[in-house]
Design a protein around this nucleic acid. Structure first.
Length: 220
DNA sequence: TGAATGATGCGCT
DNA sequence: GCGCATCATTCAT
């Protein structure tokens, strides 16, 4: 078995609240024409269906959100605040609009120049925030709709363990602010603040009934 | 350490 | 026009 296991479409095609915490510790890889960038994901948020008021699909299908309505395992990238792009992974079966926003990652390959330019302590936070992450990875709207099982942009399981997963409310939203659908690696130095309302990830915390038999890790 | 703010453009009403 | 799934900078405590 290879040490670097590329995630398949079946990984993404599950309930979003299973996929989101599972993404923590996985490596995001962007094989651009110039070089290969990779980073370890440490912070994500789930946006699930038209019934989630914070989800871009809350008002039904539009041209902007149509990728979310497609099959799982594709990149949904949107432009926000006039200057930033945000990277999402489409989850759940085709026709159900849901995605996971990638909020932060720890730089691994390809960011040497960026890190030296920004300096050590500051450099490790070069991917801390969805806008900064896309900028550093060189991801823009032209990457919207990329197949994550392809060769340009994909995820790898490199056996990196995440022993302390916590959840909290999602950042920067007003509607749907009650949901604890932000998940992060509590041991990462890179995760943005607002840990005050965070708590261990349990079925009751993230709003799924135990009968859904969600396979979540229990953090301490 | 935290609150306020400006930069900036697209999608939606 | 308005409101954003943002960030860096400034200013106040």
């Amino acid at each position: 078995m290879s040490r670097h296991q590329k995630l398949t479409r079946s990984f993404y095609g599950r309930p979003t609240l299973e996929v989101a915490p599972d993404l923590l510790g996985k490596f995001l890889v962007h094989a651009s024409s110039r070089e290969v960038y990779s980073a370890r994901i440490v912070e994500v948020e789930a946006y699930i269906g038209e019934e989630d008021p914070a989800c871009h699909a809350a008002c039904g299908p539009t041209e902007r959100n149509r990728i979310m309505y497609g099959p799982p395992g594709f990149a949904y990238i949107y432009f926000i605040y006039g200057m930033y792009y945000c990277l999402n992974f489409v989850t759940e079966p085709k026709g159900r609009p849901a995605a996971v926003l990638i909020r932060a990652a720890e730089p691994f390959d390809g960011f040497d120049r960026l890190l030296s330019k920004q300096g050590g302590a500051k450099g490790i936070r070069a991917l801390s925030g969805p806008g900064k992450l896309c900028r550093a990875f060189g991801l823009t709207f032209q990457h919207n709709g990329l197949d994550l099982t392809g060769r340009r942009l994909y995820l790898e399981d490199r056996g990196s363990a995440v022993s302390h997963i916590r959840c909290s409310t999602r950042i920067g939203i007003r509607k749907g602010a009650d949901k604890l659908w932000r998940f992060f690696d509590a041991d990462s130095a890179v995760v943005s603040s607002r840990r005050l309302d965070s708590r261990p990830i349990r079925a009751t915390n993230i709003g799924v009934s135990p009968k859904d038999d969600l396979d979540v890790e229990i953090a301490h």
